[in-house]
Amino acid sequence: MKKLLHLLHEDARLTNAQLAVMLNTSEEAVANAIAEYEEAGIIRGYKAIVNWEKVDSSPNKVTALIELKVTPKRETGFDTIAHRIMEFEEVESVYLMSGGFDLAVMVHGSSMQEIAMFVAKRLSTLETVLSTSTHFVLSRYKEGDVVLNSEIPDDRREYGE
């Protein structure tokens, strides 16, 4: 049923009936498989991809990528600090990275000021955080495999037979 995961990843709003037809199985089998995936923690959630830039008075208009250098703990490595950081509700994602810094943290907020204050007052003051480097997102072209804000049509074919 790996195909099921691919289909849901492409469009989580396909109905069980549609999925069953496409996968040549029963609705019940689809429902069971989805329940199992949820149970096993393989499917972690379903969300809409929102183009917040088009939403007036959205609370999440500004996003920043923050590069963090931290001192890993002797026993737990980077886990302790990563867990601490992901508890902040401003934080959208946390990744441990290879290369020139350790953690990449995506943060959203209503203004650049708000994010700047968050970094200055809450993130950089955490124990073991050595330095931060904040990059504001200027424009989103594509997110979660979906093209945002684009005049380019999804399908560029014009002349098929």
Binding site: L7, E10, D154, D155
Partner: peptide, 11 residues
């Protein structure tokens, strides 16, 4: 009717 289109498009 051609179905050489994305699922989103077909739906």
């Amino acid at each position: 009717v051609s179905y050489s289109y994305s699922l989103k498009h077909i739906n």
